[in-house]
Amino acid sequence: MTIEATRMSLAGTLAPQDYTASELLGVMSARLLKDGQTVFAGVGIPLLAAILAQKTHAPGLTILFEGGVIGPFVEAGKLPPSTNEQRCTRRANMLVSITEVLLMLQRGYVDVGFMGGAQIDRYGNLNSSYIGDARNPKIRLPGTGGGNDIASLADMIVAMKHEKRRFVEKVDFITSPGFINGGQTRAAAGLPAGGMFRVVTDLGILGFDAETRQMMVVALHPGVTAADIKANTGFELPVPADVTTTEPPTPEELAILRELDPEQLYTA
């Protein structure tokens, strides 16, 4: 046990200064995954959180990677820099083509789609394509990859930093659809399945109203107030009176994350 881990376990409960925002994201989103589920994971925090879940409460979690991988166990210290490399395939049950693994989403074999986000709006629409006007963009971003397909076809968990510039009234461009304009507009667009389930941030856990499909707070992380989360959101974000507080990361969860990503590729 490292000195740091000893110090933490002696202290009993961890305080926010004991972990980074990315580590908090990793732990909180891992806890949302259930044993036995099939999760389609993007690279970065989703990948890390899915492996953490496998190593804690969900040893039977089946991870899918876009590169065509079904059910791998990625090795600690050898995280892949994308979901399309040989490191993603370690101890997998099956390798298929990219098209085949994406078609599993359409066929309905994926319980949870899990990815990061650059910009999100009140209906859970995600933008990873353009900052500014798409015809004359300020910044051209890398684009959808499988993000659009995952968000169109699966129940979604999104993990991202909570900043006002990322939580906007309306995204500049809908790369990956959430509930589009709220209400029934997603189904009306030809997307009868899937949709946003949870958005995990470093301030709290967010869900969506069953009728209006607007984003709302489900839980706050330790030390975060309703005023904090509202101040960091670019639209009106309801915080129910009975909002709960999440349990802080445990020393065990953090130790696993740090063993997985010793170079802090994703958790800096």
Binding site: Q106, T185, R186
Partner: peptide
């Protein structure tokens, strides 16, 4: 035929109402 890209601006850009 497929069931994604619908309702998104990715579709808008490749279906005539974007670039």
């Amino acid at each position: 035929p497929m069931r994604s890209m619908l309702g998104s601006d990715v579709l808008g850009m490749v279906s005539g109402d974007g670039e």
